[in-house]
């Protein structure tokens, strides 16, 4: 069946582009190792940081507008929110050790449950907090339903279809990223999960996500700080990692 449900909706350009870029990301990813370094000479991390903040503020304003429109029944606005926040839910589900199929189900279930709750959620931060909390709970539920004899979490990449490369293969020509991946994966589970999820959260909503991860606001600085500090210690020991 070639039917494309998306063509029923007029304003799909944005989400379509998002899907296209997701589709292309694997192919495009390999040659971009130097892309971040390109625009940032010495002292670049501070410049990059403020660039990220500006983009974050813009995303927050946009998300707030979409949320207002979606609550009034604007399906294009809902679609835009879905395209914007599905990545953080995907990585939330996957960081719980689910297979790709199970993670897709969890992301879908999370959004379906949201439809009934949308009226009660007023702010983007609350939306993200609710989504991440729900996705984690759904992931736990799906994991409990399908738990086999294996230990959870160590077979996340074992379900790759034939022809799909493992992380080691994908990163073989990129020592820096492979070092980063290995360092994150060797952190305590809690820290690895926190850093992976936070990496996909629009920056201004970090505190909402920390709350969703069950860390009281007062402790999120130290907790986040500890996780980043542990990561830096691991990276510092790795000759393949060079701080920028």
């Amino acid at each position: 069946m070639a039917g494309d449900p998306a063509t029923d909706h007029a304003p799909t350009a944005g989400s379509r582009a998002a899907a296209a870029s997701a589709a292309g990301s694997r192919a495009a990813a390999a040659p971009t190792a130097g892309s971040r370094a390109g625009g940032a000479p010495a002292g670049g991390s501070r410049a990059a940081g403020s660039r990220v903040s500006a983009a974050g503020a813009e995303r927050r304003a946009r998300l707030a507008e979409w949320l207002v429109a979606a609550r009034q029944g604007d399906s294009a606005a809902l679609d835009a929110i879905v395209a914007e926040l599905t990545p953080v839910l995907w990585h939330t589900a996957r960081s719980q050790g689910l297979t790709r199929q199970a993670a897709e189900d969890v992301v879908q279930t999370t959004w379906l449950i949201l439809l009934r709750r949308l009226d009660t959620i007023a702010a983007p931060g609350a939306l993200i907090e609710w989504l991440v909390t729900t996705a984690r709970r759904e992931a736990w539920r799906a994991g409990a339903a399908s738990r086999k004899d294996d230990l959870p979490g160590d077979d996340v990449f074992d379900d790759l279809p034939d022809g799909v490369l493992t992380p080691d293969e994908l990163l073989v020509d990129d020592e820096r990223r492979r070092a980063l991946w290995q360092a994150v994966e060797s952190l305590p589970k809690r820290c690895a999960e926190l850093l992976r999820i936070v990496a996909f959260v629009p920056r201004p909503h970090y505190d909402a996500v920390a709350a969703a991860l069950d860390m009281p606001l007062g402790s999120i600085g130290p907790t986040r700080g500890r996780c980043f500090a542990k990561l830096r210690v691991l990276l510092a020991k790795d000759p393949d990692w060079s701080p920028r």
């Binding site: 899907a19 990301s25 990220v52 599905t86 990545p87 897709e104 994908l170 990223r177 991946w181 990496a199």
Partner: peptide, 27 residues
């Protein structure tokens, strides 16, 4: 930390991308 977080996102985007059709299926 923001720069490191952005690099972490790049890594996971590369090794574990959101399935290309997921957003369309959600819509």
């Amino acid at each position: 930390d923001q720069v490191l977080a952005a690099e972490i996102a790049d890594v996971y985007r590369m090794i574990d991308p959101v399935p290309a059709t997921l957003v369309e299926r959600l819509r």
